[in-house]
């Protein structure tokens, strides 16, 4: 099935950087990226937002979770060049005007942070969950956070924090 557009030249410019534009936390930026760079590398190294963590780099831990066009994705398994023209929200974009978001507040309050390495990913997954489903059950929270590993095993406090942020009868413990 050969069509007219097949004649478009494929220019395989290995390792040449291309300019892409990304809207990171509401601010458009132009970044030069090589095709092999992943979104997490560009967010951390080129843009300098180091809240997003790179850990397993194979999709097994969820530490690099960011919202791409409002959907939670793994920034370590996404090529930055594929995100040209798209909106990205990282953990730095959750607080508004210096005020933490409800889910961040709940994490602090429940002590849902131990070493903190999984926390940015957890917060992004939880933010996406609460947008789709404002009153999730414990089971729904477990399913939504199944892709985020916490090696400190602090899961109960994390689930409690999501329940608290969604206003479902979990009492604040620190205040």
């Amino acid at each position: 099935m050969l069509e007219a557009n097949e004649s478009t030249p494929v220019t395989a410019k290995r390792s040449q950087s291309q300019l892409i534009s990304l809207c990171v936390n509401g601010e458009w930026r132009e970044v030069a990226v090589k095709p092999r760079l992943t979104l997490v590398e560009v967010i951390r190294d080129s843009i300098g937002l180091t809240g997003t963590k790179a850990s397993c780099e194979s999709g097994a831990c969820g530490a690099c979770t960011v919202l791409l066009e409002d959907r939670p994705i793994l920034a370590c398994l996404t090529l930055a060049i594929e995100c040209d023209g798209k909106r990205v929200q990282t953990v730095e974009g959750l607080a508004e005007g210096g005020k933490l978001s409800a889910i961040q507040d709940a994490f602090l309050d429940q002590g849902a942070v131990q070493c903190g390495f999984c926390t940015p990913g957890m917060l992004m997954s939880a933010t996406a969950l609460l947008r789709d489903c404002p009153k999730p059950s414990r089971e729904e929270i477990n399913k939504a956070l199944e892709g985020n590993l916490c090696r400190c095993t602090g899961y109960n406090a994390i689930v409690d924090a999501v329940l608290q942020a969604s206003g479902q009868g979990v009492e604040p413990v620190m205040k």
Partner: peptide, 28 residues
């Protein structure tokens, strides 16, 4: 980190992708 360098082309249609893959052979 991906150590390998490669080029990247975004296909507009699946036909175009198939045609590019056919032309580029095993390297794509």
């Amino acid at each position: 980190m991906i150590l390998l360098d490669f080029g990247y082309e975004r296909a507009a249609t699946l036909q175009q992708a198939a045609a590019w893959l056919a032309r580029l052979g095993d390297g794509a």
